[in-house]
């Protein structure tokens, strides 16, 4: 697992403390009952804090799973780097 995925897992662990760490990589809105709109904002703020980036909530709209979050995050980080 690369550093980005590992750090994202940490964010998930803090946002969803009851989630089994082994299940984080397959987590989605459907499998995590606590993942509501408030949890989504908390998660995004944690990601912003962890990766020291200014998160645009709308950029992550529809990212309803760990894998989708990771994909959008990679995209966001690469665009930051290229800028």
């Amino acid at each position: 697992m690369d550093e980005t995925a590992s750090k994202l897992e940490q964010c998930f662990q803090i946002a969803f403390p009851n989630l089994d760490p082994a299940a984080i990589s397959s987590a989605s809105v459907d499998s995590v009952p606590q993942w509501d709109s408030v949890a989504q904002i908390t998660l995004l703020n944690l990601i912003g804090e962890e990766f020291a980036i200014d998160i645009d909530f709308e950029e992550f709209e529809g990212a309803n799973s760990f894998s989708e979050m990771l994909a959008r995050l990679r995209e966001r980080l690469s665009s930051s780097n290229s800028n």
Binding site: Q10, C11, A15, P17, N45, L46, E50
Partner: peptide, 12 residues
């Protein structure tokens, strides 16, 4: 305090 620290304190 970082948000992650705040959440950890509450959870613990």
């Amino acid at each position: 305090m970082k948000l992650s620290e705040a959440l950890s304190i509450v959870q613990k």
